[in-house]
Design a protein around this nucleic acid. Structure first.
Lengths: 116, 116
DNA sequence: ACAACATGTAACCCCAAGGTTACATATCAG
DNA sequence: CTGATATGTAACCTTGGGGTTACATGTTGT
């Protein structure tokens, strides 16, 4: 997963309303834009913009049937984000999950690293 | 994890520079603010603001020794976000995330994780 | 002591994110 | 056909995120 895609996904997830939209769409696959908008106080256009951001990030897909756009949740980008994250900080994760004390003692010497 | 904390963490991670800062601090625990700033084109004040956002989100901690602030990476908030999503979208993950978790917990070294 | 250094605070600027209203198009129901 | 419905586009406004410079404070080394 490239940095651009990662940025799109994280930026999309950063907004509480968009996370709520993901919850909605994932719990009711195929729901319409208007149906989503009915759960929010903001205008339908604002909701549409949020949905576009989510779709650009790949977190939502949509298929138009007649005049209705059906929305579907796609968890793949989130999987990729967390796969990357847990891999990048693998040392910390493993330490936390295995034995916290061991991790701290094992890294104690590195705290005195020069910061040039 | 409450919505406010979740929002802080995701908003903090949404900025590419802040993610790079997490990488830096996690790779060199205890490094100073100036040391972090030296890796970026923007001003030291801008970097300080980013670091404050990261610290407010709980993604880094710091303790001051003399005139130097030493920075430390804290992976716990990411773990909480991870838990939130895996439970919420449990039906979508199938065995995918469970497999990732198994790889981390049962890890023998960071090398095999990077190869994943 | 004092000069150089690391960090902190304050005041300000710019622009994009997030919101709005108004209008346009296309499709379904009667 | 015709009106109601679902979505899309356009133009605009406002707020806050991210950046800057200037200045202040505290600490280290000589």
């Amino acid at each position: 997963m490239d940095t651009l895609q990662l940025d799109l996904v994280l930026a999309a997830m950063a907004h509480p309303s968009r996370r709520r939209m993901l919850d909605l769409v994932s719990s009711m696959p195929g729901m319409s834009v208007t149906a989503v908008a009915s759960h929010f106080d903001v205008s339908r256009i604002a909701v549409m913009k949020h949905l576009r951001i989510l779709e650009t990030a790949g977190l939502i897909t949509s298929r138009k049937k007649g005049r209705v756009r059906h929305l579907f949740f796609n968890p793949i980008p989130i999987q990729l984000v967390y796969d990357r994250w847990t891999t990048q900080y693998a040392g910390f994760w493993a330490g936390r999950m295995a034995d916290l004390k061991t991790r701290i003692e094992g890294r104690a010497g590195t705290e005195e690293l020069k910061s040039a």
